[in-house]
């Protein structure tokens, strides 16, 4: 089941990346680098979220960052 999810995520990321890759004009190196890096990042993030659901994500990070302040209200 978990491998189905991993495979699904991979397929979605690859489809999105390929879809955009094909549509970029020839020679746009910078665009391609950013595209691939964001796609890679989101692939890793999605795998993390699926494989380690207990691992704190960005919303948790922000919560942790501002936790000292949250007592000031109320």
């Amino acid at each position: 089941m978990i491998w189905m999810k991993v495979a699904g995520i991979t397929v979605v990321v690859v489809i999105i990346a390929c879809f955009e890759w094909v549509r970029l004009d020839i020679g746009r190196v910078r665009e391609r680098v950013v595209l691939v890096s964001i796609a890679g990042l989101s692939w890793i993030a999605a795998l993390m979220a699926v494989l380690f659901p207990e691992m704190p994500g960005p919303i948790r990070w922000v919560e942790w960052l501002y936790r000292p302040l949250s007592g000031l209200l109320s």
């Binding site: 955009e20 549509r23 950013v34 595209l35 989101s42 979220a49 994500g57």
Partner: peptide, 20 residues
């Protein structure tokens, strides 16, 4: 060209909204 980023970032947004 910003268009190529839209779907990839959208996917990342989706992941972050669930993550953790």
């Amino acid at each position: 060209n910003y268009r190529a980023l839209s779907f990839t970032l959208g996917f990342l947004v989706l992941v972050v909204s669930y993550w953790g």
